[in-house]
Amino acid sequence: MATGDEIWEALADFTEQCNNNKRLRKMQRDWTKILHFKAIDMDDSFTMKVVEGEIVKNDKGTVGTPDIIVETDSETMCDMFWGDINPTQKYLRGEIKVKGTQEDVMRIDVITAVIWPEV
């Protein structure tokens, strides 16, 4: 089980990877959302605020009304933020649960597909 600090560190790296990727920023330029990430095996939650494709803020805990809720165990969440797993495979096997529109589910996958195409 990963700790909250490990996830937070992974989230910071994920944010950097996303914001520094010009191709991704262009693709997601019309995407403004609030995302909640919940680790189901611990009490920690995280909030990510995306404005026009840029991750402008991350918070510990749940802040605001989410457009998307992502739920998985802490290890998977940590690996997902580090880009060490293929989130689509986990999603298709029911190990990552996403609440949100089909469009938003697709957009989340777009992020990882663009920043880690080899995974």
Binding site: M27, T88, M106, V110, A113
Partner: peptide, 23 residues
């Protein structure tokens, strides 16, 4: 697209449009 991302179909089927993020 999801099947291609899942390694069940050739990867080129998961290519995304650079502007609209559509498969």
């Amino acid at each position: 697209y999801a099947m291609a991302r899942d390694w069940s179909l050739p990867r080129f089927l998961a290519r995304l449009h650079p502007r609209y993020a559509t498969p």
